[in-house]
Structure formats: C-alpha cells, structure tokens
C-alpha cells in the first residue's frame, strides 16, 4: 500500500498529498502524523493539498481530524493549496471545515505557522 511521506523542515512537518487517496492511506497518514508530531517535537504541520482534485466527506473529515489532533498535541496545522473547485464543492457538500487554518500556498502557510508560533511563543516552555 502506498504511503504519504512526512518531511521534517525545522520545527515543522510538511505533508504533500499527491495521490488519489485510498481511505486506508488517509487513516495511516493520520496515525503516522500524530506519532511524528510527538517524536519530532513538531510545532506545526503544513498539509499541501494542491494536487488533490477530489475531497469528499471522508477525506474532509480526515483533514479536520489532523488539525484537531495536532492542536491537542500543541502543534498548529495549516492546509495549503486547496483548489477553487474543491473549495466550492466542499462547502456545497456541507463541510465548511470552520476549525482549520488555510493558506493559498506553501509560502503563505509557512508564514502563518511562524507567526502563530511567535504569538504563542512568549512564556511557552521550550521543547
């Protein structure tokens, strides 16, 4: 079964989804990512979905889960690169994902993660 690579970039983890995802691949990603957040002491996750042309309710739920789980583990998630057609479809499907942070591209997402870290950084114990 194919796996989605999780790359470490300083205190952040970068995940780029480039395959038409199997439900099980999505579940595995969720598990591996939470483990890596802890083992790498990551402060943020950048989830790049710019190559994804379909997000149905299952994949949408997985994206929401990743954001919630990483928050519980003290890391922020930013979803970047959502295609306009996917955004329109997700909202009409009824899945607006109000709790996730988004950015238009990887650069903007990285800036968002860094500023989130700066704001929360004061008085926060080092990892």
């Amino acid at each position: 079964m194919e796996r989605i690579p999780i790359l470490k970039m300083g205190p952040y983890l970068l995940v780029t989804i480039q395959v038409d995802m199997h439900d099980r691949v999505a579940m595995t990603l969720q598990d591996e990512l939470t483990q890596r957040i802890v083992s790498e002491r990551a402060r943020g996750v950048l989830l790049d979905i710019s190559s994804v042309d379909v997000v149905d309710s299952f994949i949408g739920r997985m994206i929401g889960n990743i954001a919630s789980m990483s928050r519980v583990l003290d890391a922020e998630t930013v979803v970047v690169g959502m295609r306009p057609a996917v955004a329109i479809t997700l909202v009409e499907l009824g899945l607006a994902l109000p709790s996730i942070r988004t950015a238009l591209n990887v650069d903007a997402g990285m800036t968002l993660l860094k500023s989130a870290r700066k704001m929360a950084g004061n008085g926060r114990p080092a990892r």
């Binding site: 439900d23 042309d53 379909v54 997000v55 149905d56 309710s57 299952f58 295609r83 306009p84 057609a85 996917v86 329109i88 479809t89 009409e92 499907l93």
Partner: peptide
Amino acid sequence: SLVDQTKIVTAASELAR
C-alpha cells in the same frame, strides 16, 4: 466545467463509498 466535474466526482465518491 472543472467545478461541475469536481461536484459530480465528489458526489460519486460519496455514493460509491
């Protein structure tokens, strides 16, 4: 259109599941 393609593919994905 790309949006309509995405809509029917997404609907099909839900129903296939």
